[in-house]
Amino acid sequence: MYPAGGSCIELVTVYNQGEASVSAWDWCRSVTFKASVPIDSAFLNTYSDGRTSAYTGRVVKTSAATNTWAADLYNYRTGGWDRLYTQSGTTQARYDGWDIYELYSTVGSSGRSGSCDAMSGITFESANISVRTNGVWAAASPANSDTGYDAPTSAFYCPTRTYRMVNAYDHWLAVG
């Protein structure tokens, strides 16, 4: 998830060789991951509602004067937001805002992604996607979003995976 408006931070769920984390990518200074928290039982006890493994995150501008941004995770135990990372400066991102499903994996000689088997049966989902404009949150819609980043299933080189918009603009689902 990377908000429009020159954000310094992208909030990412990372799956890497059996390990999962929620990480902040710095787009203004380092252009690399700068903060990370593992998705483990402690994470789930704090950042999920206890019924699912879903978490709620946000990236918000905290100072327009310095273009400072913060990535936060919603803490279900305290009912507040926990800061994961903050950064300011000028973004080096080439595009302006997204909430997408991306897959980076080696592709074998068969044309199949090496991650297909590891992701088999796993669902990736982003729901209740909201956009903050002039300090007001609203559901992603044709008025404030587009579907330019939607990619066909074939783009992931994994024929057993499917991707679809459940509700255009504010809810997508990828299933293996």
Rank of each mutant, 00 (worst) to 15 (best):
M1G: 14
M1N: 15
Y2S: 11
P3I: 03
P3W: 00
A4T: 10
A4P: 09
G5D: 06
S7W: 05
L11R: 03
V12M: 08
T13R: 04
T13Q: 04
G18S: 09
E19Y: 08
E19M: 07
A20I: 11
V22I: 14
V22K: 03
S23Y: 01
A24C: 07
A24D: 05
W27A: 11
S30T: 09
S30P: 00
V31E: 12
F33M: 02
A35T: 08
A35N: 12
A35P: 01
A42M: 00
A42E: 01
F43V: 05
F43A: 01
T46P: 12
S48N: 09
S48Y: 14
D49N: 12
D49H: 06
G50E: 10
R51W: 06
A54P: 00
A54W: 03
T56L: 15
T56I: 15
T56W: 15
G57T: 14
G57I: 15
R58I: 07
R58W: 05
V59A: 01
K61W: 04
K61L: 00
T62K: 13
S63P: 04
A64K: 11
A65S: 15
T66F: 15
T68W: 15
T68N: 12
T68A: 12
D72G: 05
D72T: 13
G79N: 02
G80S: 06
R83M: 08
L84R: 03
Y85R: 08
Y85W: 04
Q87S: 12
G89C: 07
T90S: 06
T90V: 06
T91D: 00
Q92I: 00
A93I: 01
R94N: 02
R94D: 01
D96C: 02
G97A: 03
G97P: 00
W98E: 14
W98G: 11
Y101F: 14
E102R: 05
L103K: 05
L103P: 01
Y104V: 09
S105A: 12
S105Y: 10
T106G: 08
S109I: 14
S110C: 11
S110D: 13
G111N: 08
G111R: 06
G114V: 06
S115R: 10
C116A: 03
C116D: 04
D117G: 07
D117Q: 06
D117M: 04
A118F: 03
A118W: 07
M119C: 01
G121P: 09
G121C: 13
T123I: 14
F124Y: 10
F124H: 10
F124I: 11
E125I: 05
E125S: 05
E125D: 07
S126Q: 12
N128M: 15
I129T: 09
S130C: 13
V131C: 01
N134T: 00
G135E: 07
W137A: 04
A138L: 02
A139P: 06
A139S: 13
A140W: 13
A140Q: 13
S141D: 13
S141F: 08
A143P: 00
N144L: 02
D146N: 12
D146P: 03
D146S: 07
Y149A: 12
D150N: 15
D150W: 14
P152Q: 07
P152V: 01
S154H: 09
F156M: 02
Y157T: 06
Y157C: 09
C158I: 08
P159N: 13
R161K: 07
Y163E: 10
Y163H: 13
M165R: 13
M165Y: 10
V166K: 14
A168Q: 14
Y169I: 08
D170K: 11
D170N: 15
H171R: 04
W172L: 04
A174P: 09
A174Y: 10
